[in-house]
Design a protein around this nucleic acid. Structure first.
Length: 129
DNA sequence: AGTATGACCAACG
DNA sequence: CCGTTGGCCATAC
């Protein structure tokens, strides 16, 4: 039997990483946001923030409903173009009560949600400029 | 099989 | 504040 694909995963099983990423994203509360890096840490891959972005880019419909709650570590809507324009993503967030400090930068100090993670030192939100 | 790129992050100068 | 470098690793060419 084989042998699994070079990815080390059999078809149908799907990557646990991706599944876990989606599980975390689904738990982001309305009116809150979290970051790629924090999701990566929450699933045990602290240095694979890029893979989180990759997973979201391939996100199924059920994730697309809450994907706008994921921003980069600075609160910027780096994935905004996936909605056609960052303004669309911003509108979705404002609709949930999220406020902004810049045109496409959310107020992390007020709306940051931290996923349950194993155990890590608390990270403070970056200073406003 | 190697290179380039990416919804990222962090350290450094 | 900006640019560069390194790390991550899947995808496209």
């Amino acid at each position: 039997m084989g042998e699994q694909s070079e990815s080390g995963l059999t078809p149908g099983e799907e990557s646990r990483f991706v599944e876990q990423v989606f599980a975390v994203v689904r738990r982001i509360p309305r009116g809150k946001v979290t970051t790629y890096g924090r999701i990566a840490r929450a699933v045990g891959a602290p240095r694979s923030a890029r893979m989180v972005g990759w997973a979201l880019h391939n996100s199924p419909p059920d994730i697309s409903d809450v994907a706008h709650r994921v921003v980069n570590r600075n609160g910027e809507l780096t994935g905004g173009w996936s909605w056609g324009h960052p303004a669309v993503m911003r509108a979705l967030l404002e609709e949930e009560g999220v406020t902004f400090v810049e045109e496409f930068q959310v107020d992390l100090a007020r709306h940051l949600w931290e996923p349950d993670r194993p155990v890590q030192l608390p990270l403070q939100p970056p200073p406003t400029k």
